[in-house]
Design a protein around this nucleic acid. Structure first.
Length: 275
DNA sequence: ACTGCCAGCTGATTTACATCA
DNA sequence: CTTGATGTAAATCAGCTGGCA
């Protein structure tokens, strides 16, 4: 039993890339289909044959829901007072933004250079969100620029700002998803550890039980009972101590050395309730 | 009620890399 | 094979805001 046997439990661990294909060619923008565009960045851990955590197949909710909660909890979170204030200031903001767009286009970030922070209005955010839900990547195959420009026009923003918004949105969605997945993996790890402990204990008990049922002479360690076919004598004895089973014996006779084998526990080869 | 600090959010920039014509 | 254009991810910066002592 090699390391691989222990460590190839049938777990699939993927980060940000759909699990099956294209793992070696993570990005291929121009070949993206609508389908490939729509996947949410994710880190997955699942057992082969298990559909319990197949994010690719039934993934949509987490990232979007997360974001909705996220944005609801951050940008628009603080109750009616804030909302009222936002509503009041929204129109002002729109005017501010649009005038900024015009002046920005004049001199592309130049002038006084006091990097004023643009704040998207609720309406702008909503429209961007809507668009993001449809395709988290502006489709580069055909209408990237057009899409961008249409959106920008609709939002009264510069195309570059739309582009940046999408970039940031993707990055932060991914980050969020990674955090969620990390939590999940931690829980998985804890569960597996617990189960491992439980099974180890069970094994010990079974061993003890088996030992108790054997006649006395059979209760000697297996290695000490190995019989040499040539001299027809039972080998071993005098091992003394846990690790000594093979040591002394094997010095005298090669056959005896292989008698005892460590019992590795592999939580993944047997059905597990962990995940 | 006001103030200063801090953490989190988010728009923007920079850099590196991949892909394609 | 090389090169320029284009698009994206990742890292980072920096302004803004809300919560809290």
């Amino acid at each position: 039993m090699g390391f691989d046997d222990i460590c190839s439990p049938g777990l699939v661990l993927g980060l940000g890339i759909p699990s099956t294909e294209d793992n070696h060619k993570p990005r291929k923008p121009s070949l993206k289909t609508e389908q490939s565009i729509n996947f949410e960045p994710s880190l997955t851990l699942s057992l082969f044959g298990s559909e319990a955590f197949d994010k690719k197949s039934d993934a949509p909710p987490p990232a979007d829901d997360l974001h909705r909660q996220d944005s609801a909890a951050s940008s628009f979170s603080n109750g009616s007072v804030k909302r009222e204030r936002e509503l009041l200031s929204e129109e002002v903001e729109i005017e501010r933004n649009s005038s900024r767009v015009i002046s920005d286009e004049d001199e592309d970030g130049g002038g006084s250079n006091s990097r004023k922070k643009l704040r998207l209005t609720k309406a702008q955010s909503a429209l961007l969100e809507e668009s993001f839900k449809q395709h988290s990547t502006l489709n580069p195959l055909s209408i990237s620029q057009k899409q961008k420009q249409d959106l920008a026009r609709e939002l009264n923003l510069r195309p570059r700002q739309v582009e940046v918004w999408f970039q940031n949105r993707r990055a932060r969605t991914k980050l969020k998803q990674t955090e969620v997945d990390c939590e999940f993996l931690k829980k998985c790890c804890e569960t597996l550890t617990d189960e491992n402990r439980r099974l180890q204990k069970e094994l010990q008990e079974l061993k003890a039980l088996k030992l108790a049922q054997q006649p006395l002479y059979m209760q000697l360690p297996a290695a000490t009972l190995t019989m040499c076919p040539s001299c027809e004598r039972v080998g071993g004895g005098g091992g003394g101590g846990g690790g000594g089973v093979g040591e002394n014996a094997s010095k005298n006779h090669p056959l005896i050395a292989m008698a005892s084998k460590p019992h590795f526990f592999n939580p993944f080869t047997s059905p597990s309730a962990a995940c």
